[in-house]
Simulated assay, not measured.
Amino acid sequence: MPLPVRVLLVEDDVRVARVNRALLERDSAVHVVGSAASCAQGDALARALAPDLILLDVHLPDGSGLGLLHHWRAAGILTDVALITAADDEASVRLALAHGAFDYLVKPFTGARLAELVARHRARRPVSGGGSRLDQSELDRLLGITPSTAESLPRGIDPHTLERVAAALRESPASVSAEDLGERVGLSRVTAWRYLEHLVRVGEARLDHQYGQSGRPAKLYRHQQTDETG
């Protein structure tokens, strides 16, 4: 199973909040632990629930979500925050990023883009405790920087999508099919299969065959450490 993600929604439109909750909880490992309709409610729930991820609107009845984000950062609250809003002006985007938002979605957006946001959050989460020292590869992962290997990738393999697929495969405790993994990261079965086959070719995944009653083997994939020998 993917890493569980506890999400707080800060959105004053009840209908939008309901839709976003439904989209998020398509992933069985995502749990919306609270929903707030104002800055004051959002601040109180963020402190009480300590969610992993906060999805924050900009225009709220008692203030700006950008101001709330700045307030959290000044208070030392380092929770991953993504803006989901109709505010599409460059000033709002730049201010959100300056205050430490790690992603910014402009309404309306697709379910696949929201799934990508959650996948990026999972990829940024620390492997060990927050007190450990980080090497450059860990820093790059935290910063969302993709290694500059795009030139060497086969045609049709996007480096950002490849990282999402690889991260989901690393988090899976058991072998998975292309269909199952595609559902987790918001990709079609065929697209997920293409990326999984690439990971097999470069030695980052192993292909297993599972034979059922039909006699036709199912293709299952699992993460393979680069230092595995068997």
Rank of each mutant, 00 (worst) to 15 (best):
H59Y: 10
V202T: 15
P159I: 03
R21S: 10
R26I: 09
A96V: 03
D180R: 13
D43N: 10
E197A: 11
L8V: 05
T79E: 03
R124N: 05
V58S: 03
F109P: 01
D27N: 15
A50S: 14
D62F: 08
A46C: 15
V16M: 14
H198A: 01
P154A: 09
Y195L: 06
G34C: 08
G111F: 01
D52V: 01
V30S: 02
R120I: 07
D180P: 00
S152M: 11
E197I: 02
D57K: 02
A112D: 14
A218N: 09
D88P: 00
S137Y: 06
V81L: 05
P159N: 06
L199V: 08
G67W: 01
G156A: 14
V7H: 02
L181G: 03
L162M: 05
D135P: 02
R184I: 08
A192N: 04
G215Y: 07
R206W: 05
H121W: 14
G212F: 03
D43S: 12
A75H: 10
R15V: 15
L95H: 09
R194I: 04
D208L: 15
E138T: 10
P217A: 06
R18F: 11
G144M: 02
L8G: 04
D135C: 11
L196G: 00
P147L: 04
L55I: 06
K219N: 12
C39L: 12
G230Q: 13
T161Y: 00
G42M: 06
G156S: 13
P154S: 09
Q210G: 02
G34K: 05
L23Q: 09
S92D: 14
